[in-house]
Amino acid sequence: MTDLASHTGHRDRLREKLTSAGGLALHDYELLELYLFRCIPRRDTKPIAKDLIARFGDLGGVAGAEVRELTAIKGVSERVAADLKLIQPLAERLAREQAIGRPVITSWSALVAYCRTAMQHATTEQFRVLFLDRKNKLIADQVLGEGTIDHAPVYPREVVKAALAHEASAIILVHNHPSGDATPSQADIEMTRTLMEICKPFEIAVHDHLVIGRENTASFKTLGLM
């Protein structure tokens, strides 16, 4: 059997496995193989997929990697890297659709899943605000600060301004810790309390502050910090 025929047979078997058993039946590298089939049609993509997972840890790590990091992997051109960068916004959009327009109380897990999808693998710190209406439904979200690996500037006036622009009755604060540890810092606690005080005169409630780590998520409300 020629190499091309062998690769074609392998691809057909993977597609059949996906169709019959679903995505959970496939390893991360196998799902990545299936994606790479479209980007590199006449090449064995299994070694490339395995190298990507070995380097970045999982699919989220691959999707969150910079183009220069991706092209350092043998077989990944700039065009292929650009295709791989599509995974992250697609995943974010799908996760957001599960949370937008739904009451927070009934979609909390979907909301956290969206935040993790959007921020878990970011290499720099981001500060995001989720805006809720009077029925506590998510109506919008916005990144209001981006910074270094351990700091993102937060301007309380900008948070209030954005909340008023969205006619939000409540907000949920979210930021990530690229270091991996989701434990809130003292600076996080002080900033949250400052924002809560500034929001009070505008009758904007701060429901929670989530810290997204690589493996877990910390909730200020659950931890009794607010």
Rank of each mutant, 00 (worst) to 15 (best):
P103A: 11
S77Y: 01
G57A: 08
E215V: 13
D188Q: 01
A140N: 15
K74L: 00
V129E: 04
G23P: 01
S6H: 13
S77I: 01
R68T: 02
G147K: 04
W108Y: 12
M1Y: 10
H166L: 05
T2R: 05
V211P: 01
L90N: 00
T106P: 01
A162C: 12
A65M: 06
D188A: 00
V159R: 03
L4P: 01
H27M: 13
V76L: 07
S20E: 15
I171E: 05
E97V: 06
R102M: 10
L223D: 09
Q98E: 12
A54K: 14
V159N: 02
V80M: 05
A163Y: 01
L138H: 10
G57Y: 03
V206P: 13
A99F: 14
E190I: 00
Y114P: 01
E125A: 07
V112F: 07
L195C: 12
T192H: 08
V211M: 09
L144Y: 07
A82R: 10
A187C: 00
A54W: 02
H209Q: 09
F220I: 01
G57M: 06
V62F: 09
K137M: 15
R68E: 06
G101N: 14
L24H: 14
S179M: 05
Q98C: 10
I172W: 03
L32W: 07
T2E: 12
L132I: 11
Q186T: 04
A152F: 05
P103E: 12
T106Y: 08
V62N: 06
H7Y: 12
A140R: 14
L18A: 13
K85Y: 06
E125K: 00
P41T: 01
A110C: 05
I100M: 14
E203C: 10
L4C: 02
I204N: 11
D83S: 13
T19E: 12
R116H: 06
I171H: 04
L144D: 08
F202H: 15
S6Y: 14
P178Y: 03
H151S: 07
G57Q: 03
F56Q: 09
Y114G: 01
T183P: 00
D141F: 10
K161D: 13
T71M: 05
D51M: 13
T8K: 15
T71D: 00
L90R: 09
L223E: 10
I105D: 10
A49T: 04
I100D: 11
A81Q: 08
L70P: 04
A25H: 11
G64H: 06
E97I: 06
L130H: 05
N136M: 13
A91D: 04
Q142R: 15
G61Q: 08
A162T: 15
E16N: 11
T194L: 10
A63Y: 07
M119C: 08
V62Q: 05
A65S: 11
G180E: 08
A182H: 07
E167A: 12
R42K: 08
